[in-house]
Design a protein around this nucleic acid. Structure first.
Lengths: 289, 289
DNA sequence: AGATGTCTGTTATTTATAGTACAGTACGTG
DNA sequence: CACGTACTGTACTATAAATAACAGACATCT
């Protein structure tokens, strides 16, 4: 996370290539050829791959200015991380380092969120995603959406978008008093979209369990520590939401919702388009009147 | 070098993620988050980065089927080499996408959101960010939050979090009938937090203009095409929300909200902490009663 | 041709790393 | 409430690694 050196190891080598002895150069070229993988091996492995002896490698990295082989490897890993980092933060850090400007608070947070998002993406199984989308696409299945104290903004996001795409979508608000009535009509043909992250909210959990008991299929959005609801849910999406803050980030979950909406919308676009146009007409009428 | 195994370590982890113990999962997620760099470190470094103990790492890689940590690292290096050989266009995504027969829908969307977020980050001026945070931090200024038809989920997110941090926060819901009354009490000591993206919603715009006319300071979250409200707003955050979908992504705006919350929360943590603890006590009392 | 300096590999030493055994903790179960 | 089980970290050991010291080979210059 700290500021990266301006020059890469590869550059350092290229600059001093003619100052190296023949065997050292041999090793250096092997490194550049498959950069930076050979340098991530042990000295012995690197040496063997280059066809030189152990100390030659050590002398090479010493000439490059490293005090120890471990330092050299650390530098390679830092470079690699910066290079593989999601496009999100790639440019930012370099630019800020160049300007010698202190990284603003939001940029640090941004970076943290981006890595949570990258990690989260790997936690989604494509089949699970498709399964959930299929459930949501089925207009014969009413969809009910519910979130916790904080996550209800996510629930609302899902609701506001989903209702543009299809009918039979219900949002359950925070007024727990009304929840019992919602449960009354639950049958196995219901789909529940639930949001529950740490610290898991008892009433939401109970609500989900009851819905599941009545046969409803549940799609759950939770964190890596898994809401108790994961036991009864048909589809569980456990994302990485811990970030560099006292608060969890909703971004990964939010993006997953959007991805589902995008997919849903793309899958039956003609139908969705027709619906939205109709909606538009009605809205205009209401506004005019 | 012989043919590489078809499954990557990342894939293996994803498949068995639910069979891992909590701490093992923690380590696994760290690896996936900066894949594959953490795994190229020593066991001790990896463990420290993940905040787990040495043996946990070893148990993890044992569960993945590796006989020794060295084997595990060798596999990571092999993957990395194969991956870097082909033109590295899109970092992690591209490489992992190759593993799968075809890039899953959500991965494409993810990529698109990532670049929108990266672009958005550059559109934020640090001074503007600090200014807005300062406004929100000022408890003598009541904060009113309002969003449009779809963006009200963002408004709700801001509201739910902000009210944890400070008092005097109001959320205006979509019932336009009540809006006039909200305007009645507006003075120059009011702060309005508004969300308005294309296609800009007339009623929200009018509401903001009227509040501005009465002296309220306005913080506006909008898109790069700028809501008409930007003319009257004190602080304007114009982010890039267009993505590879029929719908705009809320993620950049959402992350900006979170960044502000995080900043606010960090700036006066003792006070915030005290408030949250008090809230917790009250909530428990209500639940019990 | 002999001597000197440079380069390189082999062997020995030391450091730190991976791996193991064990014990404490928390959690669920009878 | 006691028991058993699963999980996790601490302390230790064996091992493999990096590094240092040494010696031979080669080339170059006097």
């Amino acid at each position: 996370m700290t500021g990266l050196p301006h020059t890469t190891v590869a550059e350092m080598i290229r600059r001093r290539l003619d100052q190296l002895t023949p065997t050292e150069r041999k090793a250096a070229l092997i490194l550049l050829g498959n950069y930076p993988v050979p340098g991530l091996q042990t000295v012995a492995q690197f040496a063997k791959q280059a066809g030189v002896s152990n100390p030659t490698i050590l002398r090479l990295i010493a000439k490059l200015g490293f005090g120890a082989y471990a330092d050299f490897q650390q530098r390679l890993r830092d470079e690699l991380e910066a290079r593989l980092r999601s496009p999100l933060t790639k440019g930012v850090l370099a630019a800020d380092a160049k300007d010698l400007v202190e990284i603003p608070a939001f940029a640090k947070y941004w970076e943290s969120v981006s890595s949570a998002m990258a990690a989260s993406m790997h936690l989604i199984r494509p089949s699970e995603f498709d399964g959930a989308v299929a459930l949501l696409a089925d207009e014969t299945r009413p969809v009910t959406i519910l979130g916790g104290r904080l996550t209800s903004s996510l629930a609302l996001q899902a609701y506001l978008h989903l209702r543009e795409l299809r009918s039979n979508v219900t949002f359950i608000d925070s007024q727990t008093a009304t929840w019992a009535e919602h449960l009354l009509g639950v049958t196995p043909s219901n789909t529940y979209l639930l949001f529950d992250i740490r610290r898991y909210q008892e009433d939401v959990v109970r609500m989900g369990q009851e819905a599941a008991a009545r046969g409803a299929k549940i799609i759950l959005f939770t964190d890596e520590w898994l809401s108790p609801l994961s036991a009864v849910a048909e589809h569980v999406f456990a994302l990485r939401i811990a970030v560099n803050s006292n608060w969890d980030s909703f971004a990964p979950i939010s993006v997953l919702i959007e991805a589902m909406i995008a997919r849903l919308s793309a899958l039956n676009w003609p139908k969705v388009k027709a619906r939205m146009e109709e909606l538009e007409v009605i809205r205009r009428k209401l506004d005019a009147g």
